[in-house]
Design a protein around this nucleic acid. Structure first.
Lengths: 349, 349
DNA sequence: GCCTATAAATGGAACGTTCCAATAAATCAA
DNA sequence: TTGATTTATTGGAACGTTCCATTTATAGGC
């Protein structure tokens, strides 16, 4: 049963009474072989318990069928959703993507990338770790391995990017806050070394400017892009002389942290302080209060990224168009009712 | 710069003026080569932009250095924590584990397993998908690939398991509930095709029996092991003639769902209905109210699994001891204060 | 029945490594 | 010096595939 050494096509060739070439042809589903022969060979494969050696095959073939997905934070459910979208399309292409985690660590990322290259990946979908050096993907480029960035990008890179429209998302969210009557706004979380941060902050600022909020009434508090970061941001903001009344958060995790911190201080998110998140992860809808957030169709972006990747591999190119995904604001409960009344603008006192 | 075909050890041998064998030795860090020669070779490697072809190497070598991690639900943060623990130990062994998601689908799992085998993995750490057929891992076994199950197990399998002490965890949690004065208890979520379910339910039942809760006062409501499942379970339970006052949930996700559903009905988790979860994911502590849960040291189990795997690979065996991890109940707010007073057992009326 | 066209199956040479056995060079004991 | 030993380096034969160029068998046209 458990044969000593592992079976090769030679073993199954002997078993089936054909040549190794025939076996190879069958393995590849070539139409050149007689159906009865194919059946015979397939039976032998089953009997012997043969397992295909893709490494050996790749030695001869131009391309492997391995696609790697390099993710900066596996514990953020956001990326799990992204992965799910990608898997959907790769599955129908008969590809199993391998996921590797860099834990937001550029050194670890370097190792992961190296390992994946040595493995001979056909392509890579990457959400780069914070602090990635410009040259980190040089090696991939010179090796001609297709790479696409998902969600995040590097400042000056030529690598195609699949990401949501961060600027517009932030603009929409901010406009919503202003529409609710808020006049002192803050942007919570994130740090300026992230391009995404620049984009979201840019949308926030443009909305404030366009909709008549004075620059001195807009605040920015940087911080970790996690629940913990959100808690810290809120503390900082409330300690100010003239604290804000509404926050756009870098992402949902930060928003959850902010809501938590509000509650701890006896303030009610929504009524006492408005908060909106970004990404619209599944938890957003289930929170108390449900979080108003910018929905980015994460799984859809994952699908898109996978499609782009497939096309790049097929056409043996390393370049592709960027793709900016549509966003829309999902209004729930975390911004409460309109504030216009408080400001003496309503007709009912 | 971008050379036509990819460089091989021959190219770098020519560049450095040595033989391919010498290059190979340098690559493996053999102490047999003269330091100056090694330096020369390493320079050539850098210059040429060489990337090691692990597939070719594996053709000759007995073992690859790839370890696969097969996970049934990437969107459950629980598994991300498990992965993080494993990565810690593999990293220090110079191994990059590849993660693949089966999305709780046995067919998908079959594909993933096949792909991983073809890739020539050195070992597999698996949390099997629900409904996995007994024979699903036969092929792995006959191929002699070390496999360890993490968190979940298969009914009759000989494959080593790393999992928390589910029985004891459930017992502790149930005892806690009973200690709080609850007399009508329910077990929420999960289905009997999961061994874990049997274990946790077993602990629940034993606690009830031992601590004097009549069998007619214990309920069981099966359901999905997700937030949604928890919501459904609560609805079912509250619709009963004599509804329970406390629930042990299959896992934290179910518990979150239950708390959500309670709130929707205007009931306050903790005071109106006690709920305890299982797994103690990071969110548990941040919920409102914070969730009392059975902590299983997920990352620790991940580390353990990785260690066992490493040892199996090293000793070329496919067998190992099971490992049952310690659990402990983390009491937070979701079970509220003691109920004894309500039952006329306290001294203050 | 013979020649040609088509279909089916095959042998051999890669592919990029590792590792063993062999060689070449340097060191040492006599 | 010479032979034995150690230290560095090297050629060659695998490893399990693919794919091209052949060969062999089958059928078709006359």
């Amino acid at each position: 049963m458990a044969s000593r050494a592992k079976a090769t096509i030679f073993d199954i060739a002997r078993e089936a009474g054909v040549s190794k070439s025939t076996v190879s042809l069958v393995l590849q589903g070539s139409g050149l072989i007689r159906p009865e022969t194919a059946v015979k060979v397939r039976k032998a494969i089953e009997d012997v318990g043969y397992v295909y050696n893709r490494g050996a095959a790749n030695l001869r073939k131009a391309h492997s069928n391995v696609i790697g997905m390099v993710i900066n934070d596996l514990t953020n459910p956001f990326f799990a959703e992204l992965a799910v979208g990608m898997e959907r399309v790769f599955q129908s292409a008969g590809i199993v993507p391998f996921i590797a985690n860099t834990a937001e660590n550029p050194v670890r990322q370097e190792e992961v990338l190296k390992s994946l290259m040595e493995q001979g990946v056909a392509g890579l979908i990457v959400s780069p770790a914070r602090g990635t050096t410009p040259g980190a993907f040089r090696r991939l480029e010179t090796a001609g391995v297709p790479v696409v960035f998902a969600m995040r990008r590097l400042p000056e890179s030529r690598i195609p990017v699949i990401a949501p429209d961060n600027h517009r998302g932030a603009y929409l969210a901010t406009a919503h806050l202003i529409g609710k009557g808020h006049r002192r706004l803050v942007f919570f979380g994130g740090t300026s070394d992230l391009v995404v941060y620049q984009e979201r902050l840019g949308g926030f600022r443009e909305a404030c400017e366009t909709l008549g909020i004075a620059a001195r009434d807009t605040l920015v508090v940087q911080g970790e892009t996690s629940r913990r970061g959100g808690i810290a941001c809120l503390e900082t903001a409330l300690a100010m002389a003239e604290p804000p009344t509404a926050a756009l958060c870098f992402n949902d995790a930060v928003a959850f942290g902010v809501m938590l911190a509000l509650r701890k201080r006896g303030l009610e998110p929504g009524t006492d302080f408005a908060v909106v998140g970004f990404d619209d992860v599944v938890e957003a809808e289930h929170y108390m209060p449900a979080l108003t957030s910018v929905s980015v169709d994460t799984a859809g972006l994952g699908e898109r990224a996978a499609h782009v990747m497939l096309k790049m591999i097929q056409s043996r190119t390393t370049r592709a168009e960027d793709h900016i995904g549509a966003v829309n604001l999902v209004v729930r409960e975390s911004c409460g009712p309109n504030r216009s009344a408080d400001l003496g603008m309503g007709d009912a006192a």
